[in-house]
């Protein structure tokens, strides 16, 4: 069992409410999303592991068991080409669960006409592998969901 932590503070919502079918239809995997507080803040690693991919608007962290979690900061934020994001670690870095990875400002994303909602996805997981979904207000570092071991 992997406990996946909330990378940002806000309100936990179901992945199917994300306005992008890549996430809402579970194309990349099951998980949850967070409607972030509209204040400058940092996105934290949801699990302990290695940052195998680090973009300004998204990152993938893989635990020692090989499980990868994708954190995507906002929708269509790839178009910003890094503007408004500050990387706090380097790609390939080992991080602990809850370590800051990217600094950003959800209000700034929203002011630019994009949704700052943050999908948090268990990559390559089956739909039933994600349980214990958080509900309502979460702080960064709170449990967001559990990723069960295969039966």
């Amino acid at each position: 069992m992997t406990t996946v932590l909330a990378p940002v503070a806000g309100v936990a919502v179901r992945l199917d409410s994300v306005p992008d079918p890549v996430f809402s239809e579970g194309l990349v995997g099951p998980g949850m999303a967070i409607e972030p507080d509209r204040a400058p803040g940092r996105a934290f690693s949801p699990i302990a592991g290695t940052i195998v991919k680090l973009h300004p608007h998204a990152f993938v962290v893989v635990g020692d068991d090989g499980r990868g979690v994708l954190v995507h900061l906002g929708i269509d934020t790839v178009q910003l080409r890094g503007e408004g994001f500050e990387l706090l670690v380097v790609e390939g870095a080992r991080v602990s669960a809850g370590q800051p990875v990217v600094a950003w400002d959800p209000a700034g994303i929203e002011a630019g006409g994009r949704r700052p909602i943050c999908p948090v996805v268990a990559l390559d997981a089956t739909a039933g592998a994600v349980t214990g979904l958080a509900e309502g207000v979460v702080d960064a570092g709170d449990r967001l969901f559990e990723w069960r071991d295969p039966a």
Binding site: V52, K53, V62, G68, L123, D124
Partner: peptide, 10 residues
């Protein structure tokens, strides 16, 4: 077939 592997290819 692994989204993790394909994303990590960058």
């Amino acid at each position: 077939k692994s989204i993790l592997s394909v994303l990590a290819l960058d």
